[in-house]
Design a protein around this nucleic acid. Structure first.
Lengths: 196, 196
DNA sequence: AACGTTCTGGACTGATCGGTCAAAATTGAT
DNA sequence: ATCAATTTTGACCGATCAGTCCAGAACGTT
């Protein structure tokens, strides 16, 4: 048999996520990645093909982890509380001032120019929307949210809102500013309100 | 006297804005810029110092233009209509599928790493927030919006929302999806509603 | 212990990066 | 027409980029 790998693939990807999240794809040099991942050049190309392959793997991993975080937060308290928690989880300068969201980062950096990245982001977005929508339906059934809501549309709005919060966090907004913004945008969902 | 410039500075900046908005700062090579701007290498360095200087100039110009667009849209119809229009102006795939927002793009790309860019974006953000807040106050006085609102906080929320919409647009969202998301997030602002 | 296999480290490659330089070209003023 | 000033042009620079190659080290198997 052959000599086994000396590095842990999961740890290496986790380190790559940090680098990509802070610097973006283009600005993260392979040397940066190798240094932070603690592996040799050949190991990277052997294990991930090339820089883009590593990025795709990192994006997949990040999306899965991010979704899991959101699902947990979403289950908290009332529907409004859970949604607010899911919108804010992982944000704010408390974690890492310079570290951004790989999802938002890749959408902004690549737009629709890379089909594979697009497919990944589209799928991740739909999953998040579905999770939000399910919690909204749940809240409506519990009488916590306005019964007249189009739950899918609300799900999409919440994804938009979360993207905006991530941009604001990356721009330096404080946790309390983010929370206030989230609450204000959520006002329209709670309780029955007169139609104009 | 000396030989006059052969290129129009404003046009050159406008072209640079397009390149930077589509590709970001790092991925836009000086060769890309020169080609699209239609000027020679030395002209760029003579007129703008370096690539970053050109970017700063482009960002300034873009922010001013974007603000002007928003002010016009903001004045339309009722407060809610104006705010919705301001949130959506310039967005959607109708204009250019690949062209993004230089403001959001630079925040995501640079985070807080470049003080000069940060100062520009911070100032632009505050101006937008102030414009939104003023329109909200106006709407409250006209009885169109809930009187209990913290208008500054609403202004900040609207900036967050606009960032999110720009990300969604860059990700390929349709105009109607963007409009629906904006309206849902604005529901909480219109008319008096019972406190939970 | 010897072998085959795989991984590691570091030198290397052509391409491209942002930026500079010097000479030619073009202008208004005299 | 000549001159001073300034832009343009295109060649050029070292640095860095993503990616390749190869020799040697480290393993499981036998």
């Amino acid at each position: 048999m052959a000599r086994p790998s000396e590095f842990d693939r999961d740890e290496a990807i986790a380190s790559a996520i940090k680098v990509f999240a802070r610097q973006g794809f283009a600005a993260a040099s392979t040397s940066d990645l190798l240094e932070r991942m603690g592996i040799a050049r050949q190991s990277l190309y052997g294990a991930f093909g090339d820089k883009r392959g590593l990025f795709l793997e990192a994006l997949r991993r990040y999306a899965a982890g991010s979704l899991e975080q959101m699902r947990e937060a979403l289950a908290e308290g009332t529907a409004a509380e859970g949604i607010e928690a899911a919108l804010l989880v992982g944000l704010g300068p408390s974690d890492d001032v310079e570290s951004g969201c790989l999802g938002v980062g890749s959408v902004v950096e690549f737009s629709r120019s890379d089909p594979e990245i697009n497919a990944l982001n589209d799928a991740a977005g739909e999953t998040v929307v579905a999770a939000f929508a399910a919690r909204v339906r749940n809240g409506v059934e519990a009488g916590e949210l306005d019964a007249g809501l189009d739950t899918d549309a609300v799900g999409r709005m919440l994804l938009v809102l979360r993207s905006g919060l991530k941009v604001a966090a990356r721009g330096g907004a404080s946790k309390s500013e983010l929370r206030d913004a989230a609450r204000l945008a959520l006002r329209g969902l709670t309780s029955i309100r007169p139609r104009r």
